[in-house]
Design a protein around this nucleic acid. Structure first.
Length: 571
RNA sequence: CGGGGUGUAGCGCAGCCCGGUAGCGCGCUUGCUUUGGGAGCAAGAUGUCGAGAGUUCGAAUCCCUCCACCCCGACCA
């Protein structure tokens, strides 16, 4: 490829609406342009990246035995009524009517359509198992599209659906996909981690998310460095402490803490460690009853866990707190409250001689103990895992301590079991001639999101640092004075031909720009390898090589460059 | 949807409070010079000031309505 025949659309400044680095860099490098909220054009440079990701995904899916097909983006709404998902999906499902006033949707996912295909085409156990997948544009009318291509409304996704005669076979395919996804993300050159995910109503161990690790990721992940345990912090279990509660040694005492409404402030004022503090969070149940959730001073509430224990709730507002407890938020405590349910985190239940709010503005209590002086003891179902795990909590698999990191969800595999097959009557005849409902799995990869995630993971002050596998070009040739110097022009043209002949995806920047702006452009775009052709080096029969993240250049003999690059790309 | 904010040239912004000539930087066009890290000089082009209605002799500026976009919260690849 030659730059003058391609389309390079770099920008010095990023549009103001691009918030995170990957979005800014994708705009600046001319990979994408915005059409409407959450809807982007993939410019030629960006499309090359997208296609490379797609190709790797396709290759590995095919190798894993999945069969590609392509389903319509437009689906009749009836199918969604049949599966019962129409109402549940709600406004995220983009609906419209055709000229005959028939209801249609633009597909946000394809469980219904694929199940409809399979229920019509697959009748016998002899045709099972089958795994169909497609790489296709989806539309989800997100409440808040943001982060460019990472949470767009229109996006490219690989979605696969497998059908089985037995649960055992579904499990086999699930493991197959776990391994396939691992291969895909490895080939893409990304740092990633598979984490256990919520399986909702279906339960079991049947769901994993694949996260690209990046500090800016939206999800917090807890993992054990000594084992393969990893889970979304939303799910990661905080084990109950294995030490039992110590006997009380102090008597309860009111202390003056004017203006100190945060655990950290009270801890500093009283010179008592945060780990001896208890915070109480006031919530209101769906039925209207009040409850207090007790957490250690340095821990944070996990709303998902709490919801599972106490049911739907919302946070109490200031007036409700005032009228029920008689104080402002910041001074809430569990002592002397009547008719208010108290739920304690495991850690809190094992505490003694602690500090908490006095339910009186400007005061806290110290030397507080469960079962003494107006504080009921907490036992049984009122003690639960209510908090987010923190760094160095014990790993639930008992193999060491947890570490935390952040990730971007780019893949999700799920054992659907018979949820859709049942609703849509997707059945087959088994060996005994009996009609059975198929077991299903589904497996998604956010293809366009991967591009954003890769950039989020690989960038520096100069721009994108692409893994070679998905860079728009593998090598760029930057000539010094292409228009002026015939030696340079000849050498550059010849090198381009050599690289292309060696099946290296190379581009020659023949724009005759000033060197500075060519260097800046290609560093912004993130091409991993660069060769400079200049009269200076040519005199000695040498070309200059620099890797995108290298500190220095190195000189290579003109004849050995193609081989050298080939070697680099294999590393 | 709730809360906050922004719409002025392709991009980044000033002007708005206090109404009166539409402005800056980058980019773009032309010419000359320059050519190993986003060049210099000179000359140009580009705007329904988000849309509509209103107040006024006069509105980018004040008032109202709408629209779009962004940020913070509940979803997901």
């Amino acid at each position: 490829m030659r730059a003058t025949r391609f389309f390079i659309a770099t920008l010095k400044e990023a549009p103001a609406d691009a918030e995170i680095v990957s979005h800014q860099l994708m705009m600046r490098a001319g990979l994408i342009r915005r059409l409407a909220g959450g809807i982007y054009t993939w410019m030629p440079m960006g499309l090359r990246v997208l296609r490379k990701v797609e190709a790797i995904v396709r290759e590995e899916m095919n190798r894993a035995g999945a069969i590609e097909l392509l389903m319509p983006a437009v689906q009749p709404f009836e199918l969604w009524e049949e599966s019962g998902r129409g109402p549940k999906y709600g406004p995220e499902l983009l609906r419209f009517k055709d000229r005959h006033q028939r209801d249609f949707v633009i597909g946000p996912t394809h469980e219904e359509v694929i199940t409809d295909v399979v229920r019509r085409e697959v009748k016998s156990y002899k045709q099972l198992p089958r795994h169909f997948y497609q790489i296709q544009t989806k539309f989800r009318d997100e409440i808040r599209p943001r982060f460019g291509v990472m949470r767009g409304r229109e996006f490219l996704m690989k979605d696969g659906y497998s059908f089985h005669a037995s649960y055992e076979d579904l499990e086999r395919e699930y493991r197959n996909m776990y391994e396939t996804y691992t291969r895909i993300f490895t080939r893409l050159g990304l740092k990633f981690r598979a984490v256990a995910a919520d399986t909702g109503s279906i339960g079991g161990t049947g769901s994993h998310e694949f996260h690209v690790l990046a500090d800016s990721g939206e999800d917090a992940i807890a993992y054990c460095p000594n084992s393969d345990y990893a889970a979304n912090v939303e799910l990661a279990e905080a084990l109950a402490p294995n030490t039992s509660r110590l006997a009380a040694t102090q008597t309860m005492q009111e202390v003056d803490t004017p203006g100190k409404t945060k655990c950290e402030d009270v801890s500093a004022l009283l010179d008592i460690p945060l780990q001896k503090m208890v915070k109480a969070i006031a919530v209101v149940h769906a039925q209207g009853s009040f409850a207090l959730l007790l957490l250690r001073g340095d821990h944070y509430l996990n709303e998902i866990k709490a919801q599972k224990i106490i049911g739907e709730f919302r946070f109490a507002n200031d007036e409700e707190i005032k009228s029920t407890l008689g104080c402002r938020p910041g001074y809430i405590g569990p002592v002397g409250v009547n008719g208010v349910a108290i739920y304690a985190d495991h850690t809190v239940a094992a505490m003694s001689d602690f500090v908490c709010g006095a339910n009186k503005d400007g005061f806290h209590l110290k030397g507080v103990n469960f079962g003494i002086g107006g504080l009921v003891d907490v036992t049984g179902s009122n003690v639960a895992d209510l908090r987010n795990v923190v760094e160095s909590d014990p790993s639930p698999d008992g193999k060491g301590m947890l570490s935390l990191c952040r990730g971007i969800e780019v893949g999700h595999i799920f054992q659907l079991r018979t949820k859709y097959a049942e609703a849509l009557k997707c059945q087959f005849i088994d060996e005994q001639g009996k009609e059975q409902v198929m077991e299903m799995g589904c497996y998604g990869i956010g293809v366009s999101r991967i591009v954003g995630a890769a950039i989020e993971q690989g960038n520096d002050e100069r721009g994108i640092v692409f893994p070679a596998a998905i860079s728009p070009f593998e090598v760029v040739i930057v000539p010094m004075g292409y228009a002026k110097s015939e030696v340079v022009r000849t050498a550059a043209d010849q090198l381009l031909n050599e690289l292309l002949a060696a099946e290296i995806d190379a581009i020659l920047d023949d724009r005759d720009e000033r060197p500075g702006s060519m260097f800046a452009d290609w560093e912004l775009i993130g091409v991993p390898h660069r060769i400079v052709v200049g009269e200076r080096g040519l005199k000695e029969g040498k070309l200059e090589y620099k890797g995108r993240s290298d500190a220095d250049v190195q000189m290579q003999d003109i004849g050995s460059v193609a081989g050298f690059i080939k070697q680099r790309l294999c590393d």
